[in-house]
């Protein structure tokens, strides 16, 4: 194990997979000479050359389209759409092409591509560079969606994503860029659909993903001082979802709080809540609570943005309301 930042883990995982498999290449805006806005691809152009690290025009549709065509021919593209907000301009390629082709073509093709994209508010980037739109991509049969909260999870999930034979949206969080953590040295793959219990507890289950996991862990520490022992589950993979892990935990605690950064309405928390209500109703001894953003765009002003983003206090209050 060695300590690395979230960004280092992204960069090194891509490099390792490109060394391992000559069919892996990266394409996107600023990925080459610039090394990406946050350094996620720094040094890769020098290491692998222009053929495999492709600086593209600002043409998101053509970037994903390039990936779909290349993947259909057997390559393994990593496509970079820096901010998930920009996925709106290439949604046809994601929704109707990447996600659908295998099914529509009767299984004739595999589309093994990865789209790397960031979610998240917290740096004053306003409503077109701060959204958490992961739920959109959980409504697309054919697509897998994962989100990493730690550098170790970056390595395990991104490695799995690149080796997966399907389109995978790999979600990063911009506020985690410098977050440090221990990362396994050797080959490390986290199978999709396997949640991680980041903190074991017995009184309440808190389910989250991406950067919110850390706020949940902080809230859990505060709650423990008040005698509430919270279990924090990082689902890591939204599609496929580890239902069993969530239901087992709720079976133990009887209480469920779902925390996500996206707006509450039609967020992925609603899917998890519905799943537990359907399959685990008898396990619950309190209503399911969601802690999420208000139904507004992300505001710019640091004062407003701070208020908008879910914080520890909101998580703590939601948990306490169940006792």
């Amino acid at each position: 194990m060695a300590k690395k930042t979230y960004i280092e883990a992204i960069r090194e995982t891509q490099s390792a997979e490109m060394q391992r498999d000559p069919d892996v290449f990266i394409a996107g805006e600023d990925v080459g000479v610039m090394g990406s806005a946050f350094g996620q691809t720094a040094g890769l152009l020098k290491e692998f050359g222009m053929q495999r690290v492709v600086d593209t025009p600002i043409s998101e549709s053509a970037i994903i389209g390039l990936g779909v065509g290349a993947a259909a021919m057997g390559l393994r593209p990593i496509l970079v759409i820096d901010f998930i907000d920009f996925m709106a301009v290439c949604m046809d390629e994601v929704l109707n092409q990447a996600s659908k082709l295998r099914y529509m073509l009767g299984g004739q093709v595999k589309i093994p591509l990865v789209i790397r994209s960031q979610i998240g508010a917290g740096i004053g980037a306003a409503a077109q560079h701060s959204q958490s739109l992961e739920a959109f991509f959980t409504h697309m049969p054919g697509m897998k969606t994962v989100a990493a909260a730690t550098p170790a999870d970056v390595k395990g999930l991104l490695t799995a994503a690149i080796r997966d034979d399907n389109p995978v949206l790999f979600i990063e969080h911009k506020t985690l860029a410098r977050f440090e953590g221990e990362v396994p040295e050797n080959d490390y793959v986290i199978p999709f659909g396997k949640a991680d219990i980041k903190r074991a507890g017995s009184d309440v289950t808190i389910v989250s993903w991406s950067a919110m996991v850390h706020k949940c862990l902080a809230a859990a520490e505060s709650l423990s001082k008040e005698g509430i022992d919270a279990e924090v589950i990082d689902i890591r993979s939204l599609i496929p979802l580890d239902r069993e892990c969530i239901l087992n935990s709720v079976g133990k605690t009887g209480k469920l709080v779902i925390v996500h950064e996206a707006v509450e309405t039609s967020g992925y928390g609603a899917e998890i809540a519905a799943m537990v209500a359907d399959q685990g109703f008898d396990l619950l001894d309190a209503p399911i609570k969601r802690v999420a953003a208000p139904f507004t765009p992300v505001p710019f002003s640091p004062v407003l943005e701070k208020e908008w983003v879910v914080n520890e206090e909101k998580i703590i209050n939601a948990v306490k309301s169940l006792f």
Binding site: L66, G69, A70, A71, A72, M73, N96, Q97, L101
Partner: peptide
């Protein structure tokens, strides 16, 4: 590589296929 129900969707895919052939 496929017909397509979305008008204009085949063009970027063709570019990707060409990229792979050259690759």
């Amino acid at each position: 590589v496929g017909a397509n129900g979305i008008v204009g969707a085949g063009l970027p895919i063709a570019v990707g296929v060409a990229f792979a052939l050259r690759y």
